[in-house]
């Protein structure tokens, strides 16, 4: 990938992110922030590659924490977003019984 192609990707992705979010209703702001938080959990693949190419004990230690943190970002982001969006499932019709409490 040449630098200029990378720049094109960067520009197009930036516009995409802006457009995707620009029409979002306020009620979805928190779930969407959580969802985008999950999406940057893709850092996991980079962390895996970094650890996979680490050699010295220092590199391996840092790489280990990198993968650990990235996995936390991805899985945690997914779980909380899913839990939040779960609540929007059947809210068209008023529900009578509140959940567990």
């Amino acid at each position: 990938m040449t630098g200029i192609v990378a720049l094109y990707i960067f520009m197009l992705a930036a516009f995409t992110g802006y457009e995707v979010i620009s029409r979002v209703p306020v009620i979805l702001h928190t779930p969407l922030m959580s969802g985008s938080n999950f999406v940057h959990g893709i850092v996991l693949v980079g962390a895996m590659v970094a650890l996979g190419n680490a050699h010295s004990p220092l590199e391996k230690t840092i790489g280990f924490f990198g993968v650990l943190l990235a996995a936390g970002n991805a899985v945690g982001g997914y779980v909380v977003t899913e839990r939040m969006l779960e609540m929007f499932k059947s809210s068209k019709a008023p529900r009578s019984a509140p959940g567990e409490r």
């Binding site: 960067f10 992110g17 850092v43 980079g46």
Partner: peptide, 29 residues
């Protein structure tokens, strides 16, 4: 943004796109 930059450094298109999308969407938010 940080993920996008590391994506550039690692030549990883998935990281560049996902990181940049979150960077711009997050800025708007």
């Amino acid at each position: 943004l940080a993920v996008a930059f590391e994506g550039f450094a690692l030549h990883n298109a998935a990281m560049i796109i996902a990181g940049t999308v979150v960077g711009s969407a997050g800025t708007l938010l």
